[in-house]
Design a protein around this nucleic acid. Structure first.
Lengths: 337, 337
DNA sequence: ATTTTTATCGGGAACGTTCCCGAAATCAGT
DNA sequence: ACTGATTTCGGGAACGTTCCCGATAAAAAT
């Protein structure tokens, strides 16, 4: 139960004027005598008046709130991207409501409903690992809710999207590895229902092909985006006894798993095997050896997603824009020079 | 501008009954004929009716929203604690509005005002590093807003609080270090305007005293909670050329800085110097050597804060409760056996 | 058959705001 | 002094819901 706050009616009564006039004064409208306005504002200031945002929302039919759904909150990539989203939203005078799906499709559906129930004016979403269907996303589109997908996007779906150039990022990294003398580069990919996994994998293949290197499908394994899966997959990879001089992981978390297993097996990084990741999480420079990785502009990704969303909110007929941000290669100790 | 949704008035008109009756049916109240109720619910279901949460908020004077303020979003401790807060709040049917102060007092004040403007029914806050004054917190109390402080709390202020046993956590860790043969244990503390810094420092001092070891104030330096400050402080510490066989850092981030500098100086961890931290961030097991640290139940801290807040929301006259959670020692490679 | 109870429903105010429209009152122009 | 424009303000409806209270009709009690 909210405490009873001062309302424009109270002010109106106290100053013996109408609430319409008070409203005009507060919202700095014309149609008002500068003197009465001053009188009202002084009174309001003195008594710490704040217009009730709920009543405003009801009347204006606008909640000034946007929603965000991410797979997991505590993954550094997402908490940093959320920063970018939120900072820009605040500049626009909007609040942000954040949900996490915990990588589960069912929860993601519930999140969507929760945000709809809260009457958000737009939604930014990065889909869960499990999300194969996307009826809940199409529903948003049907309802005409402004929508932006980022990072993990849905391929055959028309909507505003923010991604990085996964293909070229991966390709550049493989080229770099090749330039440092690696010839047998393994790849631990992400789930192939996620677009970015396939794009990065394609970059890997094409870089090898263009360099005239043989492709060995035996050293391309699939993991998800966790360190645990990186550990398991690396163990499987080593058991194959293939000749390997580098491992390119779909993301940093997986690369951390790779490093862990290689060190356990006393394999020297990068002398025997170079390791490269993708994202540049804060941890990347702390692990030993520090991780060479494809650096994503994480904060900007969130910020851009926010910008695209507000562009839609302000002009609902805007055609969906695909925004591809550039990556750079951050060379550290885990790859040979 | 929200899209025009179906309202109870629409249903009333369509079924030729009054909106009061529709409202009763939706909210599953008595005073209604089971048959009409069925008719209404079927119609509502068929047309995908959802009561307008904003109108409900206005009428009930309850927003079903709580606010959270943390120093920085992307610090793993906070993103995990927020998970605990949010999960419990959702169980209670509440939304969560999250702000970050970016460790700045002025922004924290703005955050408080933003949450008040949003009519949150309670606030959970971990104060910024810079926060020396606390007028904005007292204001919340004056306004009668349910309030819970966590992690970084204000000492001389009556309010519900959730902390860990910083004193004993530190003391236990120092005892452990002593047991492994360390005699000259340095401490890099946190800012002394933050209570937990002082408690951990006190645990450090008392453990040394009780073990009959000499206290050397020269090897007790102050940092803030960042890795950078850990780096700088460790360098200063080494320049003193004091005899040191262990460093206990106020938090993991600082400990990571310590490790970095020691490695740069080719000082062997833990053979020459043991290193211990506090918190058990995810990174702690990834650094090399992995970090021995005082493990906090991070998710539970958030969950508990949430529970205390809802206890207050449900009973505003509840006396403020201090909740102290236990820590354990997580032994890894950075300390000798 | 009359009164009392019970079940079911509708009318209307209220939450705090914005906005449309019209009423005064002041002012300028003839 | 009379018209017309302009400034300033108030009344009241509306946003979508909940809730109090009274009305009606059916059921039960006398």
């Amino acid at each position: 139960m909210r405490k009873r706050n001062l309302t424009i009616n109270d002010i109106a009564k106290a100053l013996n004027i109408s609430k319409s006039t008070v409203s005009r004064a507060i919202r700095n409208k014309h149609d008002i005598n500068p003197l009465t306005k001053k009188r009202i504002l002084e009174y309001a200031d003195e008594h710490d008046f704040h217009p009730d945002i709920v009543a405003q929302s009801l009347r204006s039919r606008s909640t000034k709130t946007i929603g965000v759904i991410v797979p997991a909150y505590h993954i550094p990539f997402y908490s940093n991207a959320i920063c970018g989203i939120q900072d820009f939203a605040m500049k626009m005078g909007y609040n942000v409501m954040i949900c996490h799906s915990n990588e589960q499709y069912e929860i993601e559906i519930k999140n969507v409903d929760a945000l709809l129930a809260a009457n958000v004016e737009g939604i930014i979403i990065s889909v869960a690992r499990d999300t194969e269907k996307n009826e809940h996303i199409r529903k948003l589109k049907r309802l005409g809710i402004p929508l932006v997908l980022f990072n993990r996007v849905i391929e055959d779906f028309k909507a505003a999207k923010v991604v990085v150039n996964d293909y070229y990022g991966a390709k550049n990294m493989i080229n770099y590895l090749i330039n440092t003398g690696c010839k047998n580069i393994a790849h631990i990919s992400g789930p192939n229902n996620i677009l970015l996994s396939n794009n990065r994998k394609a970059g890997y293949f094409d870089a090898l092909t263009e360099a005239g290197l043989l492709i060995n499908e035996d050293i391309v394994l699939e993991a998800d985006f966790t360190m645990e899966s990186g550990i398991n997959t690396t163990q499987k990879l080593l058991e194959k006894n293939e000749k390997i001089d580098a491992i390119f992981a779909v993301c940093d978390a997986v690369a951390f798993g790779v490093i862990k297993v290689l060190k356990q097996n006393r394999i020297k990084i990068p002398e025997e095997i170079s390791v490269a990741g993708f994202t540049n999480e804060p941890m990347a420079e702390l692990v030993e050896p520090s991780l060479t990785t494809v650096k994503q502009p994480i904060y900007e990704i969130g910020e851009t997603a926010s910008k695209l969303l507000f562009a839609q909110i302000n002009d609902p007929d805007l055609p969906p824009e695909l925004c591809v941000l550039d990556t750079t290669i951050e060379v550290r100790e885990s790859t040979r020079q």
